[in-house]
């Protein structure tokens, strides 16, 4: 077994995909014609979005994300060499700041924002392999 998908339930799939394209520079793979499911081009492990209605269709009960409330207890993390530029880009495209880039004792630059639905997104540099 391997991790295939991370699927986030959101209020508006096309709007979220457009947001992720602008804020994080990702590209969409496709949006289903129902507008209830869409995937980003994230390589082998897919980041996907599904409409909150899709949860009910699948028999799931979820607590929808709320930008005004505390975030759900998980995050996604994008890795880049230029954390400061990615953080600025995210903020100028509608993300709310949580923590500006800072250098951790183990040498990693780490920042946090919240997306349009209030989900936590971490933007960090790769962990340096010990030389």
């Amino acid at each position: 077994m391997k991790l295939g998908y991370t699927i986030i339930y959101v209020a508006d799939v096309p709007k979220t995909i457009a947001f992720y394209e602008a804020a994080f520079g990702l590209q969409q793979r496709f949006i289903h014609e129902s507008n209830l499911y869409g995937e980003m081009e994230t390589g082998e492990t897919v980041l996907a979005f599904a409409g909150n209605e899709a949860a009910e269709m699948n028999g799931l009960a979820i607590l929808p994300n709320d930008p005004k409330g505390p975030a759900a207890g998980w995050e996604i993390c994008f890795v880049t060499d230029d954390v400061a530029a990615a953080y600025d880009r995210a903020l100028s495209n509608g993300c709310r700041p949580v923590s500006a880039p800072s250098l951790k004792p183990w040498g990693q630059s780490v920042s946090y924002v919240r997306d349009l639905d209030g989900c936590i997104v971490e933007i960090a540099s790769p962990i340096q392999k010990p030389t």
Binding site: A55, I62, L63, K68, G69
Partner: peptide, 20 residues
């Protein structure tokens, strides 16, 4: 929509909070 997504399990105060 939120109430249906939560399977009717969301707390009323949380639901009201969504809508301010």
């Amino acid at each position: 929509d939120v109430l249906h997504a939560s399977g009717g399990r969301i707390r009323m105060t949380t639901l009201a909070g969504f809508l301010s």
